[in-house]
């Protein structure tokens, strides 16, 4: 018998780890990995809520499916951008990609 709180705490931990990765990784691919962690944490939350609170509702599942789609799209575009930036500027470090500096 696992309480809902365990899943939520686990998901929060995963989420915060993801944030930390996003904020600290120098390599943009690492940043992308952090984003993936955060998305996974969200998915766990969604599934936990569905499973514990609204098992009859189908909407939660649809939500998760859409998140999967969005994650896949995000990864594809993100990696394409990284490859493109790498090709033109020969760098993958986030702090060197600063064309928009004021």
């Amino acid at each position: 018998m696992i309480p809902l709180s365990w899943y939520l705490i686990f998901a929060a931990g995963l989420f915060v780890t993801g944030i930390f990765g996003v904020l600290t990784r120098r390599n943009v691919i690492g940043v992308l990995m952090g984003v993936e962690l955060m998305l996974n944490a969200v998915n766990i939350n969604l599934l936990a809520f569905w499973s514990y609170l609204y098992p009859e509702s189908i909407s939660g599942l649809v939500f998760i499916a859409i998140v999967f789609v969005a994650a896949a799209a995000e990864t594809a575009v993100g990696l394409a951008l990284i490859i493109s930036i790498y090709r033109r500027r020969h760098t993958v470090y986030a702090e060197e990609i600063n064309l928009l500096r004021g």
């Binding site: 944030i19 996003v22 904020l23 600290t24 940043v31 986030a94 702090e95 990609i97 600063n98 064309l99 928009l100 500096r101 004021g102």
Partner: peptide, 18 residues
């Protein structure tokens, strides 16, 4: 004064956002 905020670095923006 605000110019330094616009570092062009995505992670700093993200910190601000969070």
């Amino acid at each position: 004064g605000m110019r330094p905020l616009q570092s062009g670095r995505v992670q700093q923006y993200m910190i601000l956002t969070i």
